[in-house]
Simulated assay, not measured.
Amino acid sequence: MTKKNQDADVAFIQALAELLTENDLTELEVMREYGDNDSLNVRVSRAQEIVTQVAAPVAAAPAPVAAAAPAAAPAASSSEDPVSHPGAVTSPMVGTVYLQAEPGSPAFVSVGAQVKEGDTLLIIEAMKTMNHIPAPKSGTVKRILVEDSSAVEFGAPLMIIE
Rank of each mutant, 00 (worst) to 15 (best):
A63N: 11
A63F: 09
P64D: 01
V65F: 09
V65A: 15
A66D: 14
A66K: 11
A67F: 03
A67D: 15
A67H: 06
A67K: 14
A69Q: 12
A69F: 07
A71R: 08
A72D: 14
A73W: 04
P74G: 02
P74A: 02
A75Y: 11
A75I: 15
A75S: 15
A75Q: 13
A76Q: 10
S78R: 14
S79W: 00
S79A: 13
E80V: 07
D81E: 14
P82D: 01
P82E: 00
V83F: 01
S84Q: 09
H85Q: 10
P86I: 06
P86M: 05
A88E: 07
V89E: 04
T90A: 07
T90K: 13
S91N: 02
S91R: 03
S91M: 01
S91F: 15
S91A: 10
P92W: 00
M93P: 05
V97K: 08
L99E: 02
Q100A: 15
Q100H: 04
A101Y: 00
A101W: 00
A101H: 05
E102R: 12
E102K: 14
G104L: 00
S105T: 15
S105C: 01
S105M: 05
P106G: 06
P106H: 12
F108L: 09
S110C: 05
A113P: 11
Q114H: 12
K116F: 14
E117P: 05
E117L: 08
G118L: 03
G118Y: 12
D119L: 13
D119N: 12
T120K: 07
T120A: 13
T120P: 06
L121T: 04
L121W: 03
L121D: 11
I123V: 13
E125P: 10
E125G: 11
E125K: 12
E125V: 01
A126H: 02
K128M: 10
K128C: 08
T129K: 14
N131F: 00
N131D: 08
H132L: 09
H132P: 08
P134N: 05
P134G: 13
A135P: 08
P136A: 01
K137I: 01
K137L: 04
T140D: 09
T140N: 09
V141H: 06
V141C: 12
R143P: 12
R143A: 15
R143N: 13
I144F: 00
I144A: 07
